[in-house]
Design a binder for these strands. Sequence first.
RNA 1: GGAGCCAUCGCCAAGUGGUAAGGCAAUGGUCUGCAAAACCAUCAUUCCCCGGUUCAAAUCCGGGUGGCUCCUCCA
Length: 502
Amino acid sequence: MTSLRLHDSMRRQKVAFEPLQPGKVGMYVCGPTPYAPAHIGHAYSAISFDTIRRSLKFLGFDVRYVRNITDVEDKIIKAAHESNEDPMALAARFTDDYNRDMARFNVMAPDIEPKVSTHIAEIIALIEKLVANGSAYATEGDVYFECDTFKPYGQLSGQSLEDLRAGASDRELVEKSKKSSADFALWKAAKPGEPFWDSPWGKGRPGWHIECSAMTHSHLGETFDIHGGGKDLIFPHHENEIAQSQGAYGTNTFARHWMHNGFLNFGGVKMSKSLGNVFGCGEIAKAVGGEALRFFCVKHHYRSPIDFEVEEIRSADGTPTGVRFRSLEAADRDLEYFYITLQKIDAFGAGDDGAVLPDAEKLITSAREALADDFNSPKVMAALHEAATLANKLLAEGKGLDKQLRKRSIARLGKDLRTVGDSLGIFSADPAVYLRERRARLVERKGIDVAVVEGLLAERVAARAAKDYARGDAIRTELGGLGVELLDTPQGTDWRVHDDAS
RNA sequence: GGAGCCAUCGCCAAGUGGUAAGGCAAUGGUCUGCAAAACCAUCAUUCCCCGGUUCAAAUCCGGGUGGCUCCUCCA
């Protein structure tokens, strides 16, 4: 097993990863609050940690991956009231939606997907423990965690309680029943019309943070290896989780490593509803395909903020008619190169057993080294490109090479491209299916009439058969004007949509 | 006000003390009836600016400039 180094948000540097049990990883990632359709930001976070999970597997670890669903929360209740729907039903609906959307991006289902609603007893037990040991106090049906009882508070986010109080008082957020503005709710008394559960403090529901402390404990134990989530969750969510869990179980418990992924920005600006730059997963998948987004994400390092180019399309009179995802379109072009290469490799056939060219067996090692260095997926991309280039070279030119050695090497490259691709969640589609779907997307985007194309194509085949090259070239030019490129091969003529940046 | 991040070729993007990965684009070439695809070659003496530390800095320190995020629901 390769020794792994990862960036730990708590220590703010790359550290050696030492799992509690050799070869095993217990990992918890904060999942969504399902109150609306998932957007591309949810996807980025899910993809980032799915890639880490897959990479850990690739590196030889046995991973237990837990991703929660916050199905009891203010936003759900609010959305349910607006749509006159039962909150739990609404959450269940959007949970299914979320999982279906993530599947578009090859995000694997978690090993365990705990929900707040099925962990109420564990949550109450944890709160009781905190009340009993003096870390929390009940007031008017609410229970708050008292931050002053937890000395290390603020370690993860680098905030001090004094600074936080100063900031809070400016905004008049001090709730009357709290001892201090920094204290946060573990349990909230139910208001009329809200879902509730019975508890020692009356009818109510859990606060936002406590679920993760309870669920990690249930499914991974007091101490586990990795806790992950989006950068925005560092404060207050993860800070509060630490306070709760360590307040209950001791300061050497809870997550041994913290990992956070960067944000997705649009033109250098954060995504937000007010700026109108929130894009749904379905919209992305329809425009460029799910794998293009995945590919785009893993081309970047998970900790970097990634910038996303979106262009508004307007008709001649200036009316917005849609958007183009330029960065994703570019990623899709890059992805196509790999699928075309894989298709050619597959068609070339398998070789017999035996040695391969030295350069044809470097990919796995390169990928392992790159991923073991804080999951450097962009570095893996470079290795994938090198391997694909070599495969294409061997496919095009067999001169001076032993026939079987060449065949074995090409087959090996194909196998390793898929193995390494799998560690990033890419290249798992059938090349023919991918290429067919991609062409369909481009036909749609460019408004190409397939019947016209195929008619001209048939005409050109006839002209070339009659050695009427002038007519054939004229048709090529005509199709070029429609945005269609012809690919003459020994097997016949295929066509593709010319995909430049325009 | 407090906490933190980022700035690397026209564009995207790794690299965080040892002498600038990779992709796109571009240019030339091979192949092709012509093309496309594919392959080959060329493409940052330099990493926002100014100082400093060091035998050695894109990488460390100090000071600027520009951009961004968190502290409030947020992936």
